[in-house]
Design a protein around this nucleic acid. Structure first.
Lengths: 236, 236
DNA sequence: GCTCTGTTTTAGGCATGCCTAAATTACTAA
DNA sequence: TTAGTAATTTAGGCATGCCTAAAACAGAGC
């Protein structure tokens, strides 16, 4: 299918690669291995190689790619990746705030729609929401101009016991995990203190407000990210 | 690209064929010629043939097709076509009512998104809008269950002079024409009387409310559809 | 340095969906 | 009935983007 239903020369598939590279390259902009991409995208490594070759030889190259040494985004590639990420997170916020979606439902719908949102719709949605900074899971929404500074969050598993923390974000990868996290009252913005580190694959966590303590499985804890309690808030 | 970003076995392309057949087959469900489809879709007739063959041999056949004798929708095909049409018109209404889109802007965005709306989002949007009956151009929105009765509108060009009429709908195919129509005050729901038929390629039309008369080019008049003034309203 | 293992790339295939060019069929009018 | 034209279909190609199997490579340990 040619470019009828698509913005410029972008394809949904290419968007997915760019998003994956952005996510996997981390704050240090490390090179991303073909294999890592293949696993992340749920496809074969051979397919990844082919696509990286294509992306790196496009007119405005979206990816810098060296055989056997992985890929990283070019400026153009990063721009597009952030654009799609912005679409995704704005959509999540919109579906959640205006269309009564639960925070466990927004990811799937946004994942599908993010590729097809025009600049105009992006702007209208952002305006309607009042230019939000965070999506429903606490992730930073890249700005329109491409500005994007990921906060330096720390995984709850690695947070020191006894140090007051604020939940900053939660992974949105698994809907049922999100429901479990919500049931425990661990939304972004919640104050917590780790009382006892990983023991029997669980943490003891004291939740700020009610001073109650819960036992949190390692699997869920790994999906929760926190910052020190001092910094500026992180409203959900 | 496989079915990742797509509902079941449907492709955007197939959706477009089904919509086109629905539209071109008229209320009588006439067979639609390959050529007519090719022109409507902006592609070559040879491509149409190939796709019709495919659509007619799918597991649930979406199209009944006979060589050299055009195609018509099967029950399954009509169901899908109406589903997509419902998506399109709900989206138009939503973009117009909630996101400040002008009625000349909604078509393009809806055309792109209609293929990717989940049933859930469809329902949420419909609920938010209060299950609207008409899109911003006055077209009937098919119901969730597939019920769809097109009104028997008449093209303004064919309306008898002197008989009071109500504008029921307006073609949304061309944005600038829509702006022109709006400038003339000819929105759906407006009362009009044709004072003089096609002469010098234009109509003289009296607009109900202000009793003013305008000269309407044939090109625009062809995009306006009316019903007799008696029937129940047709709020925009 | 060399081998072993796991990663990565090449080679060849398949499905979608479009194209052009060439054949075929249908229709219309003499 | 028969030609001539227009509509339609076939045949062969191309790009996307995935796959498998097999070859090539890289890094670790000996």
């Amino acid at each position: 299918m040619p470019s009828k239903s698509r913005i410029k020369g972008h394809t949904e598939s290419a968007d997915d690669y760019l998003k994956a590279i952005l996510e996997l390259s981390g704050p240090e902009d490390q090179r991303v291995a073909s294999n890592a991409l293949a696993i992340h995208l749920g496809i074969r490594a051979a397919s990844v190689t082919g696509m990286l070759q294509k992306l790196s030889t496009d007119k405005p190259a979206l990816v810098k790619y060296q055989k056997h040494h992985g890929a990283r985004l070019t400026t153009a590639g990063r721009k597009r990746a952030l654009e799609v990420l912005r679409h995704h997170r704005l959509l999540e916020r919109f579906l959640h705030d205006f269309l009564d979606y639960g925070w466990d439902e927004v990811h799937e719908e946004a994942e599908r729609l993010e590729h097809f949102i025009s600049e105009k719709l992006e702007d209208k949605i952002a305006a309607k929401l009042g230019d939000p900074l965070l999506d429903p899971h606490g992730h930073v929404i890249p700005e329109r101009n491409g500005a994007f500074s990921a906060r330096d969050e720390v995984n709850l598993l690695n947070w020191a016991c006894g140090v007051p923390a604020l939940i900053s974000s939660v992974s949105d990868r698994d809907a049922s995990d999100l429901r479990a996290i919500e049931r425990l009252g661990l939304r972004p913005g919640t104050s917590v203190v780790v009382e006892a580190g990983v023991r029997n694959a669980s943490l003891l966590v004291r939740i700020g407000g009610q001073n109650s303590t819960i036992r949190l499985g390692q699997h869920l804890a790994a999906q929760i990210f926190v910052v020190a309690r001092t910094p500026q808030a992180s409203a959900a």
